[in-house]
Simulated assay, not measured.
Amino acid sequence: GRPWKFFWLIPYPNWRLLFPNFKSPLVWDVFAISTYLTISTTFLFIGLIPDFAVLRDKETNPTRKRIYSILSLGWRNSDREWRHFAKAYLFLAAFSTPLVLSVHSVVSFDFAMALTPGWHASIFPPYFVAGAIFSGFAMVWTIAIPMRKWFKLEHYITLNHLDATAKVVLFTSMVVGCAYLIEFFIAWYSSVRPEQEFFWNRVFGQWWWAAWIMLLCNMALPMSLWSQKLRRNPAWLFILSLFINLGMWFERFVIVVPSLSHEFEPWQWGGYTPSWIDMAFLVGSFGWFFMWFLLFVKQMPVMAIMELKEIVTPRFKNAHGHGGHH
């Protein structure tokens, strides 16, 4: 509960003469998240190398030109470089995929390894992985759909792309919905009184409003994506993405707060009202994200050359008006 002490979890020789407990899932988190962060950052940077080279060649300001030269790692746009680049990029993509499974499974162990009612469940790892893909795609919509409109990228981010992502969101929504229902079934089937009381309390007790917002946003609204018309409607997908982001935030709330407020000892039961500090952390995290995101959009290309190189037709094909739409 004291995030500013995060360095207590990192295994290094220290003045406290303490070493982290490797049986704790919080320590596994440190390894999973630091690996994920390293690979994701490398993946992003490598994908940007050809773009940095173009910016370097076009830049007139000597300081900025120097920065772009360093970042582009001497890229000369040769055939050999592109070949190695494609292999490295594919390797990193393949390497990142299992990390998605490991990171979100380990994050779920933070809860699943505890004995708290509502947490102690073996379904958490696949449920968190599906939830991560689900909310991740929704966040991509939240960002990409307005940018597609403002920067006129409709020819690059097509309705077919949106349709394909909508199918992924629909599928992961059903997986997450299934996980919610299995949680109730397992609580009933276990015959563990505190567990049963907790789940009853979750939907009909003190925190009913949070649980129903979560179920509505994550299970009910995405069912609209069975309609092809809505899957290909950017305005609806953007609105739905905001609901899904809200629903996934409430999922975190429903997992953390009701479980801790309704543990085994009735004399420990209580409520929770966020303080202004809690709210400031929440608003500040949005500000932190959008600051970096908008700085990136301002300074870097939003569409990678590497992604477009294969779909943009060579100029000589269009000399006589042929081949423009292939």
Rank of each mutant, 00 (worst) to 15 (best):
E195Y: 03
T97M: 10
A88E: 00
P126N: 06
F316M: 04
M214N: 14
G284P: 00
K317P: 04
G324R: 14
V302C: 10
S224R: 05
M147Q: 06
N61D: 13
P62R: 12
W150P: 04
F134W: 00
F289R: 13
R252Q: 11
F111S: 07
S135Q: 07
V54C: 01
A121H: 05
W188A: 14
R202F: 13
V107P: 02
K317F: 11
V283S: 06
R66G: 09
G131K: 03
L92P: 02
I255P: 00
T116V: 10
K149D: 06
N201F: 01
D163T: 05
R232N: 11
F199T: 02
P13I: 05
V297L: 09
W28L: 15
V203D: 04
F204R: 10
G118C: 05
P314S: 13
F134S: 00
S135A: 06
F91S: 13
S105L: 03
M303K: 05
P266N: 12
R56A: 08
I10N: 03
K149R: 08
K309D: 02
L37M: 06
I70W: 12
P50R: 08
L26N: 07
R64L: 15
M300E: 10
M223H: 09
M291V: 11
T158K: 02
I157T: 09
N77K: 03
L92Y: 09
A179F: 02
Y272E: 02
D29L: 12
V106E: 09
K23V: 07
F296H: 05
C217E: 07
L37H: 02
F185P: 01
L44Y: 06
F111A: 07
S72H: 04
G47S: 11
K317N: 13
F7M: 13
C217W: 03
I277Y: 01
A164C: 00
D57M: 09
M219V: 15
F238E: 12
A304M: 11
F52D: 09
P301S: 13
F293C: 12
R56Y: 15
S34C: 09
W28M: 12
F52G: 08
L215P: 03
W208V: 09
W276P: 02
F185D: 04
P20Q: 05
W119E: 11
V283M: 12
G1V: 08
H262T: 15
F184S: 00
G74R: 12
P314E: 15
V256E: 07
V140G: 00
V254N: 10
E81D: 09
A166Y: 06
K229H: 15
L237H: 15
